[in-house]
Nucleic acid binder design. Sequence first.
DNA 1: AATTTACATTTGTATATACAACTATAAATT
DNA 2: AATTTATAGTTGTATATACAAATGTAAATT
Lengths: 151, 151
Amino acid sequence: MKIEEILKSTVPMDNSKKIILNVLYTQNVITENFNEILKPYEISGEQYNVLRILRGQKGNPANMWTIQERMLAKTSNTTRLVDKLLLKELVTRKVCPENRRKIEVLITQKGLEVLAALDPKVIAHEQFFSKNLNSQEIDQLNQLLEKYRNQ
Amino acid sequence: MKIEEILKSTVPMDNSKKIILNVLYTQNVITENFNEILKPYEISGEQYNVLRILRGQKGNPANMWTIQERMLAKTSNTTRLVDKLLLKELVTRKVCPENRRKIEVLITQKGLEVLAALDPKVIAHEQFFSKNLNSQEIDQLNQLLEKYRNQ
DNA sequence: AATTTACATTTGTATATACAACTATAAATT
DNA sequence: AATTTATAGTTGTATATACAAATGTAAATT
């Protein structure tokens, strides 16, 4: 459905404004859909993101800054996200022996299992939307988004 | 910058996943940028959205449902958003005389003035990003996003 | 007319987010 | 060695969001 219909806009809309609204609305659709997937596992999207980053470390511990810079939302409070994951025993946290300002965060076996259970659902989620586009259009969409936000 | 560089991803990424991350990240960039514009006026993006919907009513009052269905984030709590705007005297709210379940929300003169002051900045914001694309690409991006999220 | 159902909005509560201020430690400078 | 500056992470606080439950009222049904 076109964005004007979704927002029941009565006046014609500039294409530049349409992109903004399309991006924001598409993000909402994706996120709501993804939250449904995460709900049974009682983790938020941001927490999932942290777990995925930690798995990507392949056994190497990550400090808070490493996690932060790999997150989508750069404003998120990594300390508190890790706190929540600790409570659920999905990660461990300890002070780095060489530099006591640094923290070493690692994903636990339980955390890896949650991710493993989620993996097929996440892939299905990703393909659920992109199935509407052929592979050329998928490439194009990625390129246009990357070009669009260049500042 | 490509999304893999931004998120410092070490492994190659599926194009379907890349779209998701590109949309989410682009939304973050747009929103952060827009929040900077709104900051001096002390209204949030959602509050701005409500004001714009009310101005679009062209003098006709809107009830809560009308506002809700025109919002980008369908989960937002319109009652409380209107509460905040009331406190700032940017809108008025009264009970509809015919149907007392309905509420009539109207933008005030002060609300219209805030929007008028914001208008040029909002247009500049919209064009700030889309300047990176030519008009054909802008069309294409809108069409791809609309096609992408079709369920 | 009384009851039920549907609708419109508000409230409660838990959690998340934004952003500034703070603490602790390491490294650099004097 | 003492002081300053930079870095790494945490905490406080206000606001926002998500979602369920509650309230109040109109319309429909019995």
